[in-house]
Design a protein around this nucleic acid. Sequence first.
RNA 1: GCCGCGUUCGUCUAAGGGCUAGGACACCACCCUUUCACGGUGGUGAUACGGGUUCGAAUCCCGUACGCGGUACCA
Length: 510
Amino acid sequence: MEKKVRVRFAPSPTGGLHIGGVRTVLYNYLFAKHHGGDFILRIEDTDQTRYVPGAEEYIYQTLEWCGLHPDESPKHGGNFAPYRQSERKEMYRKYAEELVQKGYAYYAFDTAEELDAMRARLRTNENPSPQYDRTVRMQMRNSLVLSEQETADLLAAGTRHVIRIKMPENETLSFTDLIRGEVTFDTSVVDDKVLLKADGMPTYHLAVVVDDYLMQISHAFRGEEWLPSAPVHVLLWRYLFGEDAMPQWAHLPLILGPNGKLSKRDGAKYGFPVFAANWTDAKTGELTEGFRERGFLPEAFINMLAMLGWNDGTDQEVFSLEELVQKFAIEKVHKGGAKFDYEKAKWFNHEWIKKLDVKHYEGEVKKIFVEKGWHPGVESYLEKVLNLVKDRCTLLSDFWEHSYFFFKAPAELDTTPIKSKWNDTKEGFFFSFAKALSSLSDWSAASIEALFKQLAEQASIKPGELQLPLRIMLVGGKFGPPVFDIVQVLGKEEAIGRIHSGLNMIREAV
RNA sequence: GCCGCGUUCGUCUAAGGGCUAGGACACCACCCUUUCACGGUGGUGAUACGGGUUCGAAUCCCGUACGCGGUACCA
């Protein structure tokens, strides 16, 4: 009987979510939904020294923006609550004690100073980072070397201590990774990791195993940086719950920056966001820009991340979330890390801006417009304008520069391109064009263009000679969408008004 | 240092023994457009290196190099 698919994303609330984290959530979500399973959000806040206020709320907001809704979480609740590890603190100790009882773990009373001293003593060029492992554990202060009575006394006296796993010697451990296949380790080279800290909190290693078991997680996907500690987790599963109950692992490749692992610094250095949404560090006040505020659509952001390390085997690159859910297969995830390319990210956004109806992002665009000093006007007019310029916008923030002139008549004109060729015949043409426009009944770009060409022919001027002046009168310079589309969207009254004031300005300039 | 993972155009990737190694981004050229873009067409450009196995290898095996990750009472 197949277990129900249950996956979890388990971030620690220590700051903004960067794109590597978001991709991990995405793949978890896609896998769960593809298999009709549950997607759980668990907050791993066992390190109280690194806890950052606001970080958890930020995670919810980011997931919501991306459209990745958890079935269970601290906020949404669920049958396996609590979902915050700090609130589960009492549950872990008993498993750690169980391991000690079974001889798989031991109490260690070494102080931070003693650990430092051990490392300093053993450090050499050949061994730059000595570990607390089988080679030194019998020289330390722990229940392996202390007598039972001494250990009991220390414990009874409330001596600060941790519980460490006792890694077996010379054992070959392997497990099957859904992406990488069989991965093998020699237990002798893994150190005696701390399982339960002196403050009573579990470390990640204990917590992830206990919680994955208690929350009936069927598949566990996480970043590749966890691969080296996988043997510890496999062992804990074996000792505590049996390897048969262990979730299937998949270690996701890393997302790289221009040189090495992608970092916040890369973003600042190369001018692209690395966080999903803006993040302000409460302590330093430092703001790290997000994709969202940069003008990315969630659809594009998700799409771009999904393709960074995965594809369905075809040439298709633009996928909606629904399509991704339908087609996602964890086996097709790449093994190698992927270098993030901001240009490609922008391309995805451009594709989505073109593809989506403007109603989808009108609200966001309005916010940006208001910041630029725009006053909300007629809804249908705004929509027409956005539809006209959407193809030329890569980011939502591009809309303003491509359309501001629809909301405000030009205060001055760039007449340099037309000045030298300006004459009375042309002026006369525009007078009669404006007049003819006022009585035009079919107000469409096509009939405006027909009218324009007809009058041009009557005046014996090539229409091409007149289009640029018209454009400049309407928008102020050499830019914007096709000129007759501009006339149409502007509307009769506004277009005629701009032609008349444009003529005045040209006359002054010539 | 040790351990692990990886390596196809500049970048993301397809091809998992068999056509001139395909697509996308970026770049270049041309076309479209008497604005600027969009768009269209075409082009430059890759199997890290060395050995095997095989009629045949990007693909399987071994070695080397390089990259990345880990090596905390952080996750």
